[in-house]
Design a protein around this nucleic acid. Structure first.
Length: 493
DNA sequence: ATGTTC
């Protein structure tokens, strides 16, 4: 089994080892040259500032990023976003592009929660007008959207219906189940469906785990937040997105639940078994991979795309449940929620860089294409693709847009959140869920969650400072700040 | 992230 790391150096605390040699190659961009370790194929590029770099050295994420640079077929550099932290094999907040056709694809470079992502909806409501109803609103949302580990919902999909969701993503729900509208699809990355999906590549077990989980939040850092637009940094871009100070918005953060998790588990196991046959040697068993052109690579890619489509459909159904609540409480007109955009941060996609096709792994990294890209919705094409960077629970979230510079510096990617600075277990030792709940309520934030113990894992103290993380991506020029949103209420598992 | 060790 490939569940344990075989890299001997990851068994010692990160702090006891000398830091690798960093070279500042541009403002807020550091590189570790290939001379650092003989097995590196490309440099490791880390987006950081003098203030955030020490934090990145506190766990094994930098070493993991160096390990990623050894993958066969990797091009350019392995990139670490400013919210990077330790993950399974690859760091969370990591980007790696491998050249087609023989470069590898590695499930660890996408993560267990395939197409975990964020969607932002905006209402016509003024916070001032509904301030007294926020508690009731959050309560109703928590009743309508199931959350918590292992939780299923009222909807269940199997057989051909599930096949069409796995291959058609959010569009299958729009077309067959009257969940949302066709115009929603224009505001979803890749139109809400990745082309490479093949339902038959998804195991029966994965299908069973996912059957009743569409339209559910899950647990961990997944949440649904009612927010108010707090500050606008770029009037032009904010206006285009429909973000006006004082306006109420809803941020949904969820993924492909047990289905995506099982797809990752299935294929890590398969690849671990065939790596040697392809003559691939990696410094950490958790980097299990296979050439994208191999049967194992193709199977995983097809299953991963199908799980990603399940993720898009999940957020589509959650948004549908949220819209129902808003409509019931505020009426058809005032309660209308327009989808601004939906973007994932755990996928691998075939994209073109410098004229060559590459497989871009993004794990805890958000696609952030710049102005002019055909993959950006026409309505936003001149400002760049919207990107959402949620802070930790109860802290501000940022809306950004991608930049042209990002396509050369980070394969069109930026950070995905604040990023952990404390493990889940460490967080539980430091704070109790009860105390955290009191603190949030003291700041006027309504909170509904299934488990107090899990609440503690998501304490703001367990995360990096999102303001600093966003300042780094802005300084490095891989995203542009548009607006900040402040939480009014949180629903989580 | 996850029916939190098939």
């Amino acid at each position: 089994m490939a569940t344990r790391s075989t890299s001997s150096s990851t068994s010692e605390p990160a702090s006891t080892r000398p830091p690798p040699p960093f070279v500042e190659v541009a403002p807020s961009v550091y590189e570790i040259p290939t001379s650092y370790r003989s097995d590196m194929r490309v440099p490791a590029r880390i987006f950081a500032s003098p203030e955030t770099l020490p934090g990145l050295l506190a766990d094994h994420s930098v070493e993991q990023l160096v390990n990623v640079t050894t993958l066969p077929g990797i091009v350019g550099a392995a990139c670490g976003m400013p919210d990077m932290h330790e993950g399974y094999g690859f760091p969370v907040g990591g980007v790696a592009a491998t050249a087609l056709p023989d470069g590898v694809i590695s499930p660890g470079g996408i993560g267990f929660d395939i197409n975990c992502g964020v969607r932002l909806l905006v209402s016509n409501l003024e916070h001032k007008a509904i301030a007294a109803r926020v508690e009731g609103l959050v309560h109703e949302l928590s009743r309508s959207v199931p959350s918590g580990a292992g939780r299923g919902g009222r909807w269940s999909f199997a057989g051909k219906k599930l096949d069409r969701i796995l291959e058609g993503g959010a569009g299958a729900l729009v077309r067959e189940h009257e969940v949302g509208t066709a115009s929603d699809l224009e505001a979803i990355e890749s139109g809400g469906a990745l082309e490479g999906a093949d339902a038959s590549a998804v195991s029966e077990r994965a299908r069973q785990r996912g059957a009743d989980q569409l339209g559910t939040l899950g647990s961990g850092n997944h949440f649904l937040e009612v927010q108010v637009v707090d500050e606008v940094f770029d009037e032009g871009a904010a206006g285009r997105l429909g973000l006006v100070v004082g306006r109420v918005a809803v941020l949904v953060h969820s993924g492909s639940r047990g289905l995506g998790h099982q797809v990752c588990t299935d294929h890590v196991r398969l690849m671990d078994g065939v790596m040697q046959r392809y003559g691939i040697h990696v410094p950490d068993r958790q980097l299990a991979c296979a050439p994208l052109s191999s049967p194992e690579g193709q199977q995983y890619f097809a299953a991963m795309c199908a799980a990603a489509n399940f993720g898009f459909a999940n957020r589509q159904l959650i948004a549908h449940l949220v819209r129902d609540v808003f409509r019931r409480m505020f009426g058809e007109r005032d309660g209308f929620l327009r989808l601004i955009y939906d973007v994932g941060h755990n996928t691998a996609k075939i994209e073109k860089y410098e004229g060559k096709k590459v497989c871009v792994h993004r794990k805890g990294a958000t696609r952030a294409f710049g102005p002019g890209s055909r993959d950006v919705p026409a309505a936003y094409r001149d400002i760049g693709q919207p990107v959402f960077i949620p802070g930790s629970m109860g802290t501000s979230s940022f809306v950004c847009v991608g930049t042209e510079h990002g396509s050369e510096a980070s394969f069109g990617s930026t950070c995905h959140g604040a990023g952990r600075q404390m493990s889940r277990t460490a967080a539980k030792k430091k704070v109790t869920g009860q105390a955290l709940r009191k603190e949030l309520e003291g700041r006027g934030i309504v909170i509904r969650c299934a488990s107090n113990a899990e609440l503690a894992e998501e304490a703001p103290a367990a995360y990096k400072d999102v303001d600093r993380v966003v300042d780094v991506v802005a300084a490095a020029g891989i995203a542009r700040k548009v607006a900040r949103l402040r939480p009014l209420g949180v629903v989580k598992g």
